[in-house]
């Protein structure tokens, strides 16, 4: 048996950016551009990065909502592209996604009960009474209390953070083995968020679950994840164990990201980030380092070389940057 529940190998996903004459596509958004990582049983990998860098797309490919342009996906050591019929259904039971936008992802015509119980229906699990119990229990756990006052409401009768918690409950109802959690608590305050994170951790302990945890909140990633991968324009630029990454960020993008974390103090004033420009352009990027246009430490070498490979510069700490590699090699 493989040591990993999930292995992603050289994943690519390009989207057409326009259509020319006769529908011929001339330009592509390189949403995910040769990304590889693996996640162990019971492990959570955090995925952070700039808005629009390809995090959700990576997640959607994993749950098979998007076909990859190229690359392989192994679940428990098996290539999932070969799955059909019952195997495919089993895959969809084991692998769940909590979607980023709870305003888009919840069916507006279904009650909260129906939304959360639907996966149980599809997979023929439990009778009506058992389903009601299971759904009520989950509502309680995600802080929608008392459950009886939420079960028969519709999504438009809930606040943003309440919808987000319904989306979490739906993804967890089948006790999946792998969950892609895409910004699952972005609309929740610290207190409620803590409860949700504790719930997710408990489930992980109890069922040896693994997460790909997409977030903009590094404090959340710190609590939830053993390792963090940092993405920029379709590429993973740094990946390492969580505390190491937070205390010893090496890639210039990661460093800028950490320096920009907001501070809860109205008298604090932050300097300008050490990053050039502000608009990222993922359409047909030139082959050089994807961060080149905005990099404060770029050199002539970077301009003429390909995008740098991810290199293990310290044990378990991988970085894709020529300058960092040079420094570390001494």
């Amino acid at each position: 048996m493989s040591e990993y529940i999930l292995e992603v190998k050289n994943l690519k996903k390009y989207f057409p950016a326009d259509r020319g004459l006769f529908g011929r596509v001339r330009h592509f958004v390189h949403a995910v551009d040769d990304v590889s990582f693996e996640i162990k049983y019971g492990e959570s990998l955090g995925l952070v990065g700039e808005s629009g860098c390809g995090k959700t797309t990576t997640g959607k490919v994993i749950v098979k909502l998007e076909e990859p342009t190229d690359g392989t996906l192994l679940l428990e050591g098996e290539d999932v592209s070969t799955y059909v019929g019952a195997r495919k259904k089993e895959y969809h039971r084991k692998v769940q996604m909590i979607f980023q936008d709870p305003y888009e992802s919840l069916n507006p015509r279904m009650t909260i009960f129906d939304i959360i119980a639907e996966p149980l229906n599809i997979h023929g699990i439990g009778n009506l009474k058992e389903r009601e119990e299971r759904v009520s229990e989950l509502l309680q756990e995600v802080g929608l209390t008392p459950p009886s006052s939420f079960l028969w409401r519709y999504p438009h009768e809930l606040s943003g953070g309440q919808r987000q918690r319904v989306a979490i409950a739906r993804a967890l109802v089948l006790n999946p083995s792998f969950v892609v959690a895409d910004e699952p608590t972005s609309m929740l305050d610290v207190s409620i968020r803590t409860g949700i994170m504790e719930l997710m951790m408990e489930l992980r302990e109890a069922h040896n679950m693994s997460y790909l945890y997409i977030t903009h909140d590094l404090a959340v990633a710190r609590y939830m994840c053993e390792r963090i991968a940092v993405m920029y324009l379709g590429k993973i630029v740094e990946i390492s164990e969580t505390e190491e990454l937070l205390h010893n960020p090496l890639h210039p993008y990661t460093r800028a990201l950490l320096a920009a974390v907001p501070v809860p103090d109205p008298e604090f004033s932050r300097g300008e980030p050490e990053i050039i420009g502000s608009v990222t352009k993922p359409i047909d990027p030139p082959p050089r380092c994807r961060f080149y246009d905005r990099c404060p430490i770029r050199t002539k070498d970077c301009e003429i070389s390909d995008h740098p490979p991810l290199v293990e510069v310290l044990p378990g700490h991988f970085v894709a940057c020529y300058e960092v590699e040079k420094q570390k090699r001494g």
């Binding site: 903009h216 907001p262 980030p273």
Partner: peptide, 14 residues
């Protein structure tokens, strides 16, 4: 209303 929940901290700050 929660204008930056989906933004990374650099874009949010800007």
């Amino acid at each position: 209303d929660e204008p930056t929940t989906a933004l990374d901290v650099i874009v949010q700050d800007k």
